[in-house]
């Protein structure tokens, strides 16, 4: 992957992230205009600052599966609220094409903005998937406690009774 295309894809991620932030900001804005009976008609204006680029960068050249270069992407979404200029910081970490970490940090300036932004953050649900143990280096694994032999035998016995 050339440096240029990596940069292009990085920009794509940031644009996607910004779109999410802007949509969320717009929703919050719309709800506010509904409840306060104000006559706001325009969508919030926005500009974007890209604060930092990748912290780590894979130097793969022929990887067909990874859509985005590894690294941590950070972006700030700016928008204008009736209370003034506001921003939301978003950070994503991508490893092997998978988002392994994401944070959305509200940084509202006034009380109301803080409230809307924290609503957005709390509604921003993170969904997770499993990754094969074989692909990871781990010291130990934690889950539900391993069961004693007696318990497993009892479960097996009940299962075979149910099947017979």
């Amino acid at each position: 992957m050339s440096a240029e295309s990596a940069q292009r894809q990085k920009t794509l991620v940031i644009v996607t992230v910004l779109a999410v932030v802007v949509i969320a900001a717009a929703v919050a804005f719309y709800q506010r205009s509904k409840t306060s009976d104000s006559t706001v008609t325009s969508t919030p204006s926005q500009s974007s600052n890209i604060n930092s680029s990748t912290s780590t960068q894979s130097n793969s050249t022929n990887d067909a599966t990874a859509e985005y270069a590894d690294g941590t992407y950070e972006a700030t979404g700016n928008y204008r609220s009736p209370g003034g200029a506001e921003s939301v910081d978003v950070s994503l970490t991508i490893v092997d094409g998978v988002i392994t970490e994401s944070t959305v940090m509200p940084s509202g300036n006034n009380r109301e903005s803080k409230e809307y932004q924290s609503q957005f953050v709390s509604n921003y649900k993170q969904y997770v998937v499993g990754k094969e143990l074989a692909d990871l280096t781990l010291s130990r694994v934690s889950g539900s406690s391993l069961t004693p032999l007696g318990f497993n035998q009892a479960v097996d016995a009940i299962r075979s009774q149910a099947q017979s």
């Binding site: 997770v128 998937v129 499993g130 094969e132 990871l136 781990l138 010291s139 130990r140 934690s142 539900s144």
Partner: peptide
């Protein structure tokens, strides 16, 4: 520092994350 796999409850061959302990 240990890396602790957080076991996927649907599939014990997988983890959904890794904690540093």
């Amino acid at each position: 520092k240990l890396h602790i796999g957080l076991e996927h409850p649907d599939n014990i061959g997988q983890v959904i994350g890794v904690a540093e302990l």
